[in-house]
Design a protein around this nucleic acid. Structure first.
Lengths: 192, 192
DNA sequence: CGTTGCATGTAAGGTGTTACATGATTAC
DNA sequence: GTAATCATGTAACACCTTACATGCAACG
């Protein structure tokens, strides 16, 4: 129980997943992050999760319990402690909130549109729009599950936000496509 | 002119800024990134830019020219080479495109809403909405400048996307606020 | 006379990724 | 039988940030 104070956000994300009260393994946490945090924040690598769990355990923020599957397999499930809950609350209530980050690799390429062909740009934008549609579908499914359990009212509220967000992405990319199609092709046939 | 092949995205971002043909210093690049890339991608730290410029110079993708300001100050401006332009084109046309990332620290806290008070959540959401309004204003100003020069048609198209994006954020946060206000306060008065 | 802007760069350190090592179970 | 899923963890490495070092010019 050291007084560390500067944990990486990943640590709080893991602690947050455990704050719903369930006992979860590192593997469970990764799967859940992939189906929730990923849509509005970020899903850490599995090795990163194991690393943070180790640190949280040393700090006394989580406790592990060995689950005997059979002889050789060692599975451990983690539970948040009162100290962990207090640390999470302090982070939510007191830590300064970093600005949101959007990192879109397609937009970076479009921004550099003068370097390549219109054909390539349109293909990139089309792919991104299609991918946004798929993500929207995934979020919709998550949202339906969250709505079933009142314990997930806050995740559901965020998933509604995510759904809206993906829908506005779809529209924005459709509009961008029209804009690009109207622009002259600076480097025709440059792409493969 | 080694055959490196796996440059970090930051290197291509810097190369991209130089692909508009102007001779720019590291300092110039940082300022420009802050006013453009930041809104849809990311603005690297100034030290990072100098590091990438060094690498790009070794690869022969950019060339430097010393600008004698006065005796002691040493300023260098960089220009993209044909090799650099080819490398940038290859990256845009051939490299696989990573999925877009949204990292929103307010949404992470709202997702964990059961841990804190409604008061705190509403304050966070209000701040984020206000900040989105400010960013939208900044983007609007950039867009007006880009529209003046036909060489910036692609940046302008992306800035239009960014403006739309910020507007949809504003609406989505307003809607999230209404949802949260309707939810029961799980931990009243827990926040300072 | 202090802060901001201009201007460049190095060094140390944190954060996170991929690759590796290991092995059982289940589904096709 | 081979791929995917379950399951844990370490090690090496990439990437990027902050802090530091240095100094002039202009504004208030």
């Amino acid at each position: 129980m050291k007084d560390e104070r500067h944990l990486p956000t990943t640590a709080y994300a893991v602690l947050g997943l455990l704050s719903f009260g369930r006992e979860l393994s590192g593997y469970d946490l990764k799967k859940w992050a992939d189906n929730s945090l990923r849509y509005f924040f970020w899903s850490p690598a599995i090795s990163n999760i194991y690393g943070e769990l180790k640190r949280l355990e040393q700090l006394g923020y989580v406790v592990a319990r060995a689950v005997a599957q059979d002889d050789l397999r060692n599975k451990r499930v983690f539970r948040i402690t009162d100290d962990g809950r207090a640390a999470l609350l302090a982070w939510i209530d007191e830590a300064s909130v970093e600005p949101p980050v959007l990192k879109d690799h397609v937009l970076l390429r479009v921004w550099l549109g003068h370097v390549t062909s219109r054909e390539r740009l349109l293909a990139l934008v089309d792919d991104e729009e299609a991918s946004a549609r798929r993500v929207a579908e995934d979020v919709r499914r998550s949202l339906e599950l969250s709505r079933e359990d009142p314990a997930f009212a806050f995740p559901a509220a965020v998933e509604e936000w995510c759904l809206r967000y993906q829908q506005s992405r779809i529209e924005a990319f459709a509009e961008l496509r029209r804009t690009l199609a109207a622009l002259p092709d600076v480097n025709p046939g440059r792409s493969p």
